[in-house]
């Protein structure tokens, strides 16, 4: 898989999880605005970076 594809996929995961988590936290009034962004950012970064590293290391088995 190309490097650019890896970057795009992990960026999508980052933005998606960031938006979903921070919006959920605000929508249900669970946390304040700053904390929602912080939690969303941390979870998004962890997921995005993990996926990026996984896609970099992962080598599909040849049949």
């Amino acid at each position: 898989m190309k490097l650019l594809e890896n970057v795009i996929y992990s960026s999508i995961i980052f933005v998606f999880s960031y938006v979903i988590i921070s919006m959920t936290l605000r929508l249900f009034n669970i946390t304040e605005s700053f904390t929602s962004h912080m939690v969303g950012g941390i979870v998004g970064t962890v997921l995005g970076v993990s996926l990026f590293i996984y896609l970099l290391i992962y080598k599909p088995k040849k049949k």
Partner: peptide
Amino acid sequence: IAAYVIMIPLTIT
């Protein structure tokens, strides 16, 4: 924060 976030994958690799 932007610099720190970019640093994470670079450090891991």
